[in-house]
Amino acid sequence: MPESTAASTAPGATPVPVELSAEDAKLVILARSARARISAVEGAAVRDQDGRTYAAANVALPSLTITALQLAVASAVAAGATRIEAAAVVTEASTLDGGGHAAVRDLAADAPIHVAAPDGALLGTVVE
C-alpha cells in the first residue's frame, strides 16, 4: 500500500483509492465471504499482530446492533489480539461507519481500513 495515501481523519470519511497487498486482498475476500454467508448488509475482516484473521457480518437484532467491523474487532480482542494490522469492510455504503472506525482505532492508530464494494472492488482506504 502506498505510504503517500492520505485520508480524512473524520469517521464516515470517504476512503481514498489505493492498491492492496496480497495480505490485505485476503481480508477483502474474507469480508465478502462473511457478508455473503448470511446475505448481510456488510462484512468485515481484520488481521491482528500475529497475522491471525477474524471475519464477521453485521448483526441487527431487536436487542443488539453491531457493525461487521466492530464484531470482527471484538472477535480479535476476545481471542487475545492487542493490535490490528489492517481491516477491510465490504459494504454498499461509500463511507466508513464511525463505530467500526473507532473500534479499529482503539487497537491501532494507523492500521489501514480498506472499504470495498460487494463485488470486491476497492473503493478506497482510510489510514487515519
Rank of each mutant, 00 (worst) to 15 (best):
V104F: 00
A7P: 01
A88V: 00
G120R: 02
A6D: 05
E19L: 10
G43P: 14
A44R: 14
T5Y: 02
G43K: 15
D97G: 14
A72R: 07
S75E: 15
P2A: 15
T82G: 10
A40D: 11
A68I: 09
D97C: 04
A68G: 02
L69F: 06
R105Y: 04
V73E: 13
A6W: 10
A74V: 03
A78M: 08
R35F: 07
V127E: 09
L96C: 05
I38S: 08
T65S: 12
A76D: 00
T65G: 12
A34R: 11
P62W: 06
A79N: 13
L123T: 12
A108L: 08
T5M: 02
G98L: 00
A45W: 07
M1C: 03
V18Y: 03
L96A: 05
A68K: 05
A44M: 14
A22I: 03
A103V: 11
D24S: 14
A87Y: 09
A78G: 15
V46L: 08
G80K: 05
Q70K: 07
D48P: 09
D106I: 06
G124Y: 08
Q70R: 14
A45Q: 14
P62N: 07
G124K: 07
A117R: 14
L27H: 13
S39F: 12
A88W: 02
T9V: 00
A55I: 10
I29H: 10
A34I: 06
A109N: 15
A81Q: 01
T14S: 07
T82M: 01
L69Q: 02
H101L: 12
S39Y: 09
A56R: 03
T9Y: 00
R32D: 08
A103G: 09
Q70W: 06
V59Y: 05
G12H: 03
P118A: 08
S21W: 03
E85D: 10
S39T: 13
A7E: 03
P112K: 02
T65R: 15
A40Y: 10
D24K: 12
L30R: 14
E3I: 11
R32F: 10
A40Q: 11
T91C: 00
S21H: 07
L107C: 06
A72S: 11
D24P: 02
A68Y: 05
S33G: 07
A57Y: 12
R37N: 13
A31C: 10
A72Q: 10
P17N: 00
G120H: 09
L122Q: 15
A60H: 12
A45H: 07
E19S: 15
L107E: 05
Q49C: 02
D24E: 15
L27S: 06
L30I: 01
T14V: 14
D24V: 12
S33C: 02
A22Q: 14
A25Y: 08
L71C: 06
M1S: 11
D110C: 10
A76C: 04
S33I: 08
T67A: 07
T5F: 05
A72K: 10
D106G: 12
A87I: 06
T9I: 04
A13R: 04
T65P: 01
R35P: 13
A60N: 13
A60I: 13
A34V: 09
R37W: 05
P62L: 09
V46W: 03
T125I: 06
A79F: 02
R105M: 05
P15F: 00
T125V: 15
V104R: 01
A86D: 00
V89D: 00
A13P: 00
